[in-house]
Amino acid sequence: MKLKKNFILIISILLFNFFTGISLAVEPNEVLEDSNQEARARNISKKIRCMVCQNQSIDESSSPLAKDLRLLIRNEIKEGKKDKEIYKFLSDRYGDFILLNPPIKLGTIVLWFLPIVFLFFGFFIIFNHNKKSNKI
C-alpha cells in the first residue's frame, strides 16, 4: 500500500515537471517581464548547445557561459532582434556546432540524405535477391 502511494507520488512529480517544463538552470532574476518574450527566449535557449557541456542545451546548463548566453539572448530579444538574427549571431561566433539542429548545407547534405540512399539501396538488394530466388 505504502509502495503504491510512493509510486503515485513519484509519477505525479515527474508528470508535473514534464508539463510545466521547470528548468533548474534558468535563474529567477534572468526571467523577462514580458511572458511572450520570455517564451521566445526559452525556445531559443533550448535549441542552443552549451559549448562547455556539449550535450546539454544552454536552457538546461548551469555553466557560467550558458548563463551569459541566456542573458545575451534575452537582451537581443529586448532590443527587438528576430529569432533568426539571434541564431546567426551565435553561429557566426561559435559555428554551426552551437545549433542543436544542424542546418542543411552542402557540408551536411550527406548527413541528412545518406540514410535514405542506404534505405533504397537495401530495398534494391532485397528486391533483386527475391526475384532470383523466385526463378528457381
Binding site: 562547455v52 557560467p64 557561459l65 551569459d68 545575451l72 561566433r93 561559435y94
Partner: peptide
C-alpha cells in the same frame, strides 16, 4: 565576458 563571446571563446 562579452568580448570572449565575440571571439567564440568557450573555455
Amino acid at each position: 565576458g562579452r568580448i570572449a563571446i565575440d571571439w567564440g571563446v568557450y573555455g
